[in-house]
Amino acid sequence: MQIFVKTLTGKTITLEVEPSDTIENVKAKIQDKEGIPPDQQRLIFNGKQLEDGRTLSDYNIQKDSTLHLVLR
């Protein structure tokens, strides 16, 4: 499925993911596309910070959902 990740600069990254993917996996995909190390990434969905060990389906993230990427 496709999800979107919006950065603070207003750029939107499109990712191909599975609901069973962990947040860690998603961060690795963002690193592949953008070169941002996962330990600098914080992903936010519906105002909640997403934890590495959880999956997209844990957070009820579905296709065409938009996550927000904050760098630390």
Rank of each mutant, 00 (worst) to 15 (best):
T12W: 10
N46Q: 14
I23Y: 02
P19V: 11
Q41H: 14
N46D: 05
E51A: 06
L69A: 02
R42K: 12
M1K: 15
I3R: 00
K6M: 15
D58H: 15
F45T: 08
Q62I: 03
I36P: 05
K11A: 04
Y59W: 04
D64T: 03
T66R: 03
Q40G: 09
R72D: 13
T9A: 11
L71I: 06
F45M: 12
E18K: 07
L43S: 00
P38A: 10
V70G: 05
L56S: 01
R54V: 09
K63R: 09
S57V: 11
E16V: 13
L71N: 15
F4S: 05
G47I: 04
L71G: 14
S20K: 15
G35V: 02
Q2I: 07
L69Y: 02
N60K: 06
D64V: 03
I30S: 03
T9F: 03
I13Q: 03
N60L: 10
G53V: 13
Q2D: 11
L67V: 08
S65N: 04
D21I: 07
D21K: 07
T14F: 14
L69S: 01
I3S: 00
D58R: 11
G53E: 10
Q62H: 12
V17G: 10
E24W: 02
E51T: 02
R54T: 11
T7I: 03
I44W: 15
R72L: 04
T14D: 10
F4A: 13
I30R: 00
M1T: 02
G35F: 09
V5K: 00
T66K: 03
K6S: 08
Q31W: 09
F45Y: 15
D64M: 04
Y59E: 07
T9P: 14
K11L: 07
V70F: 13
F4R: 02
S57T: 07
N60G: 08
D58E: 11
D21T: 05
I44R: 07
V17H: 08
E34V: 10
P37T: 10
E16D: 11
I3N: 00
T14G: 14
Q40P: 02
Q49R: 14
K11R: 02
Q40W: 05
M1D: 11
V26H: 00
G53K: 14
N25R: 13
V70H: 06
A28V: 12
S65P: 01
L71V: 07
S20L: 14
G10L: 10
V17I: 11
N25P: 03
L8W: 03
I23H: 04
K29G: 07
K63V: 08
K33R: 06
V70T: 05
I13V: 13
N60I: 09
L8E: 06
P19S: 10
K27H: 03
V70P: 01
I30W: 01
K11S: 12
I23T: 13
L67P: 01
V17K: 00
V70W: 03
L50E: 00
G10T: 04
N46W: 10
Q49L: 11
H68R: 02
N60Y: 08
F4Y: 15
T12P: 04
S20A: 12
Q49V: 08
K33D: 15
V5D: 00
Q31V: 07
D39W: 03
Q41T: 05
Q31H: 12
D58L: 06
L71Y: 15
L8Q: 13
I23V: 08
D32S: 04
I36S: 14
R42W: 15
N60S: 06
Q41S: 09
K63I: 07
Q49E: 13
R42L: 15
N60A: 06
V17T: 14
K29D: 06
I3Q: 00
D64Y: 04
